[in-house]
Nucleic acid binder design. Structure first.
Lengths: 334, 334
DNA sequence: GTGAAAGCGCTAACAT
DNA sequence: ATGTTAGCGCTTTCAC
């Protein structure tokens, strides 16, 4: 493997000059620069970014802390779309991504901070962790620049990107109200997700604005899991057969809810209308097709990466980005 | 940021001893080892893997060259599942993953090899590139350990993981034949994918074994793209209305084919039976549900990572792994 | 059992 | 415009 030392020897200059020439500094004559470039090409030289990182104390690398990258997570296109957005944005800025291996059982041996410091990433993007994750606090308190997806924490070194969950949920519920529904239940995620709290708030606001009763007993928890949502829906509808519409805090849970509705012999949307949240790919393929609130997941990742890079390069004036959502009408609420 | 130097100073030993103690060498007295560990903890020390990589010439890092990680690729759950498998396996072996940013238009500035050498990855896994990719050859010829997914090339430093595409395709077509179909068309991918070539072969073998005519004009190309498959199917069925069944080389293309069939006013499976390939998540949600050949994509990634790590650590006896497929029967071929 | 010294490949003062 | 020197944090001979 050729080094700048080899180049220096062949070109008959010092390593400093080689370094400067290769890095495009101005204080090197065009003649020598050309010669050095030629030798480099001839010797098939590739710079050693490891050595460079060591001395520069920068790695041009972004760490990725992502949950669900295991056998169970394969259904979750959400994560992948976010990943694609991150990837594209960092590619454009010439940052590489390192995916931390945090899925195994021994995951907890090392904290996120240790991982980041050991690998000397310049910054980190965190997606899919719960707000009660014991290490979240640690990351936030460390001085590692960090962008959180869907967890609104902001500081000097911490930023976040999320969608407008209150507005999204409000739109969803308003739509159901517009369709004439007055008894609207909700299947929410779990309380350790910021989005759940906000979507619940949006649900309440919509009901309030239309002077409808807010019955907390009509709000059940499905933990963002299809099966759990199915069970929760079953119970809810047994207790309150008067409910005619359901707002689910994720599309996957909406599918669970629809299964439950079918199980008790009712139809969607004729007997009970359903609207989801996310607009995952399945939503437009399933039967009935699912009305939902679209989140631009790709953009979520894209903005997160842009924000982080902006912070790293000192150009980020503010550390929060809220992305709009969009109401998508399909069969399940029609 | 604490270094071993700091620890050495506080513990009153040399850096050598600190290094040895921290790395679990035996020639350090238990007393000093304990003291060093204590100081390290107290100083909140994290080893600098960059420095370590520089001197060790190993990074405990696997490079990932994956196509489709951009806006267009978000529909492609295949890639994500493979990624999850790779992630899990490398996590278990304590390798980190670096995702190379190879999506942008300026992608071609640097070759894969340059990328790998610059980042000093120990090895690389390549997924989703075409066999005519100009840089494939380069990677293969370099001495960087490399595992290819779905491209059967083998050498000292190159291995591959794939499924048994001939058998899979044969099973699919046999199933159609068992159902009584005698005029079976095929919508294939493009010729720069090894899987296309093998699936075509499986198609031919199945027909041959049952003494059915092989009509190459009944095989069309959809480039693995839904829309193109739709067009190709439309043309095929217009020219040969006698066709009663279709084998598609990917589920996405099968959906395109089904759209085409519906467009000409025929029904699936009553008029024309369809079977796909992959078993993507959509296959079980779409309407009609799609019969298909299941590939264990997660396992594909998992095995690829295991194989590469085996090669890196000198324990891989053979460099190829073929994974079985499974016939999944659903409505579209019933 | 422990330490001194060299060096991995590179960048960055500080000369000249 | 170019070279000398030091050093990033770590591992590894080679002495003692």
């Amino acid at each position: 493997m050729t080094t700048i030392k080899d180049i220096a020897k062949v070109a008959g200059v010092s390593v400093t000059t080689v370094s400067r020439a290769l890095n495009g500094y101005s204080d090197v004559s065009n003649k020598t620069r050309q010669r050095i470039m030629d030798v480099a090409k001839e010797l098939n030289y590739s710079p050693n970014t490891v050595a460079r990182s060591l001395v520069m104390k920068k790695s041009k690398t972004i760490g990725l802390l992502v949950s669900n990258m295991n056998r169970d997570g394969v259904k979750d296109n959400f994560t992948f779309e976010v990943l694609c957005g991150i990837n594209q944005a960092s590619a454009d800025s010439e940052y590489d991504l390192v995916l931390f291996s945090t899925t195994s059982t021994k995951q907890r041996e090392k904290t996120y901070t240790q991982l980041c410091r050991e690998r000397r990433v310049d910054g980190v993007i965190i997606q899919g962790i719960r707000t009660d994750d014991p290490y979240l606090e640690e990351v936030v308190e460390s001085d590692i620049p960090c962008v959180l997806i869907d967890i609104p924490i902001e500081s000097n070194t911490v930023g976040y990107v999320t969608t407008d969950n209150v507005a999204g949920a409000r739109d969803a519920v308003k739509h159901l109200i517009d369709r004439g529904h007055m008894k609207i239940g909700m299947i929410n995620g779990h309380s350790h997700a910021d989005v759940s709290i906000r979507r619940l708030q949006g649900y309440r606001e919509a009901l309030y604005e239309h002077s409808l009763d807010i019955r907390m007993d009509w709000v059940r928890t499905g933990d963002f899991v299809e099966d759990k949502a199915e069970e929760a829906t079953l119970e809810l509808l047994k207790e309150y057969p008067e409910i005619t519409a359901l707002f689910c805090a994720s599309d996957l849970m909406a599918f669970g809810a629809i299964k439950a509705i079918k199980r008790i012999g009712k139809r969607v949307p004729e007997d009970i209308a359903v609207i989801g949240y996310d607009d995952i790919l399945l939503a437009s393929y399933a039967s009935p097709t699912l009305s939902t609130i679209r989140q631009d997941k790709y953009r979520l990742g894209w903005e997160a990466a842009l924000l982080l890079i902006g912070m790293l390069e000192g150009e980020a004036t503010q550390h929060a980005r809220i992305i709009d959502t969009e109401l998508i009408l399909r069969e399940s609420s029609n």
